[in-house]
Amino acid sequence: MRVLAAMSGGVDSSVAAARAVEAGHEVVGVHLALSRDPQAVRASARGCCSIEDASDARRVCDKLGIPFYVWDFSDRFKEDVIDDFVDSYARGETPNPCLRCNEKIKFAALLERARALGFDAVATGHYAIVDDEGYLRRSTDEHKDQSYVLGVLTKTELAHCLFPVGDTPKPQIREEAARHGFSTAKKPDSYDICFIPDGNTQAFLGANIGLRPGMIVDTEGTELKEHDGAFNYTIGQRKGLDIKVPSADGRPRYVTDIDAETGTVTVGPREALRVNTIRADRLKRLHPDMNGELDCLVQVRAHGSVAACRAIIAEDEMVIELHEPLEGVARGQAAVLYLPVSDGGGEIVLGSGTITATSRSA
């Protein structure tokens, strides 16, 4: 096959490209330039899109003897990921930009161009597995599993994806990179949001949204403190509230709701975070069982655990009834459904939806 290897400049994509070459594919490496922010060239940038990352990717391709290109997707990235991130926070949601990048850039825009140029598949360093039946499963390395952020793909996109490192624990991937002589073998994993190099998300949102004063209130509606913008808060937040008036029972307060339209941020006790029902739309189906009603598992955060549930799925929306309450579920997050398996492999990804509402029983 003709395979386009998406090269982030990290160790995982380096080994993924090497394995694609070893499998006998005709491989071309490509690095996506996603930001024109001058800070992104700094060695201290903590994302995956800096000029240093592009140079690391080029050196790996030179060692493998494969062509290497840099494709400028910065305009598309700004529109589909950065602007979406800002708009989502402005609506009082809590988005996951890495998930949106996978959906709109790495497995939509990139795959579209790759297919137009005659490539059969795109290979990435994601930790996930596509089984013999074409279903997406969790990685062998449960600590690095990235199936959650891939749950936003379409079935057609998944059919043209390769995840060569998904069946191997991360320490072995680093050892394999060292055997190849890749400079990325000891490179730290990327973290934080790539388009916010200094990690100060609140300052970034403040600069892009502007001051939108509102009020922090308790669950009874009592006004506690004025704030500069609801985007400074997320569901489940405890630290940084800086409320001078203690709660009546002396217990910590948590953000339990955000109304961006009125600027109202509601705080309450931890038990007020517990929800029993999740509603989601913008469904993506990766398995035929994602239809009608079924018992399955749901994950609502990239590094969160799964919860047993009953999912009622319609055309483009679903209702998830949790068997046990979950805490800190926010609008804008993805709800990814999993099917338990008994064959010893990882759970199968059924599909996903974007959370629009939550509710809790008395």
Score class of each variant (00 low, 15 high):
237 Q>L: 04
203 A>S: 12
243 I>H: 15
188 P>R: 13
246 P>E: 12
225 K>L: 07
221 G>R: 12
187 K>G: 01
215 M>G: 06
225 K>Q: 04
239 K>M: 10
227 H>D: 02
197 P>I: 01
231 F>K: 12
196 I>Q: 06
204 F>D: 08
221 G>W: 14
239 K>D: 04
188 P>Q: 10
212 R>K: 10
202 Q>I: 07
199 G>F: 14
241 L>S: 01
233 Y>A: 00
228 D>Q: 03
206 G>L: 03
195 F>T: 04
194 C>Y: 03
220 E>H: 12
223 E>L: 02
246 P>I: 13
224 L>C: 02
210 G>R: 10
214 G>R: 13
202 Q>C: 08
228 D>N: 05
236 G>F: 15
192 D>P: 04
210 G>E: 01
217 V>L: 06
189 D>M: 06
201 T>V: 04
216 I>S: 02
191 Y>W: 06
237 Q>H: 09
212 R>D: 00
188 P>C: 05
188 P>I: 06
244 K>M: 11
196 I>S: 03
229 G>P: 10
233 Y>R: 02
230 A>S: 08
224 L>D: 09
189 D>R: 05
207 A>W: 12
238 R>F: 10
230 A>L: 05
220 E>G: 06
224 L>S: 00
195 F>K: 12
190 S>H: 02
190 S>L: 00
240 G>W: 13
234 T>D: 01
187 K>W: 15
197 P>T: 00
221 G>Q: 10
213 P>T: 09
190 S>A: 04
242 D>W: 14
243 I>K: 15
229 G>W: 14
239 K>T: 15
194 C>T: 08
222 T>K: 15
242 D>K: 14
236 G>E: 10
221 G>C: 06
236 G>T: 12
229 G>L: 05
239 K>W: 13
191 Y>Q: 05
216 I>W: 12
214 G>S: 11
199 G>Q: 14
219 T>S: 03
215 M>V: 09
230 A>M: 02
193 I>N: 04
244 K>V: 12
240 G>Q: 15
217 V>Q: 11
229 G>A: 07
193 I>R: 08
227 H>V: 01
212 R>E: 00
